[in-house]
């Protein structure tokens, strides 16, 4: 057991070491990513500011009862998650389709290592790291401005809920990517998911009731950004925090079970 953990840890180090080596060749890409991040963040902040009354000079409750700095916390969490998906999720999960299409999934399945681990952690892209940093800074800075006290308990809770939202995002994405075993072109479905997740830029209460239900129960956007942001602001309720963990655990188990199921299909039907 212990040796197995060591083997996985060593493998992960090798995975990411090789991934970084491969990407240093493209400094230009890194520059473009940086510019894109700055542009996107500026644009998002600008659009957000539109809701806070350019005429009335910062009317307190522009979006669903969230003040300007509070809404910026949500945007910070969104930026952070976007950075995580550029760093870890997109580079790995978008490759699953290619593995299925080109038949190189066979190589992965023949390795004495968990195939979901291989497919989910095979590579890492440093391009999203600045976005993670900026997202964290925005989240905490805006939180302080909103008057929250960032003590150890708050920070620990924030960390746990961020982890849980990352896992939800990962599991959702992996579930979609898994369907590539049957439908080769799932890339478009991923785009739909990404487009819908853009809703996480704003607190969930900023939406009309119908959309709010949709974004909580069907597509858990609320758990992705609003719940961690509430934690930063020190006002997340116990049930919501627990629900977030529950949703994360549920989606994670579901993604695992679904992958196993899909593999059974793959190994009994592929030619």
């Amino acid at each position: 057991m212990a040796s197995d953990w060591r083997r996985y840890a060593r493998t992960l180090r090798r995975f990411w070491g090789t991934a970084l080596a491969g990407q240093l060749e493209y400094q230009l890409n890194l520059l473009i990513e940086l510019l894109a991040m700055v542009g996107n963040l500026a644009g998002s902040l600008f659009v957000l500011s539109l809701f806070y009354g350019n005429s009335s000079g910062g009317a307190g409750t522009g979006l669903g009862g969230w003040s300007w700095p509070e809404a910026m916390v949500v945007l910070g969490v969104y930026t952070l998650l976007d950075g995580v998906s550029s760093t870890l999720l997109r580079p790995n999960l978008s490759r699953i389709v290619t593995h299925v299409q080109e038949g190189t999934l066979d190589f992965v399945l023949l390795k004495p290592i968990d195939s979901q681990f291989w497919l989910s952690a095979r590579t890492v892209s440093p391009a999203g790291l600045p976005e993670i940093a900026v997202g964290l800074a925005l989240m905490l800075g805006a939180g302080l401005k909103a008057g929250t006290r960032l003590d150890a308990t708050t920070l620990a809770l924030v960390a746990v809920l961020l982890l849980s939202s990352t896992l939800i995002l990962y599991a959702l994405w992996f579930l979609l990517a898994t369907t590539s075993i049957w439908f080769v072109k799932t890339w478009n479905a991923t785009e739909v998911l990404r487009a819908a997740l853009a809703a996480g830029r704003y607190p969930i209460t900023a939406y009309p009731a119908g959309l709010r239900t949709l974004f909580t129960l069907v597509l858990p956007v609320a758990f992705l950004t609003t719940v961690p942001a509430e934690a930063v602001l020190g006002r997340v309720s116990g049930p919501w925090a627990l629900a977030s963990l529950g949703v994360a655990a549920g989606f994670l188990l579901l993604s695992r079970a679904f992958w196993r199921f899909a593999l059974r299909f793959y190994t009994s039907a592929s030619s």
Binding site: G53, A59, L63, N188, E191, V192, A195, A196, A206
Partner: peptide
């Protein structure tokens, strides 16, 4: 699916219409 991935205007409509009825009102939003 491509067509569906263009949902952004609908999401933004949600935010704008809630802001219109809730917060500042049409005048505040200009």
């Amino acid at each position: 699916l491509w067509a569906l991935s263009g949902v952004l205007p609908f999401i933004m409509l949600g935010v704008w219409s809630a802001a219109l009825t809730g917060g500042g009102g049409a005048a505040g939003l200009g």
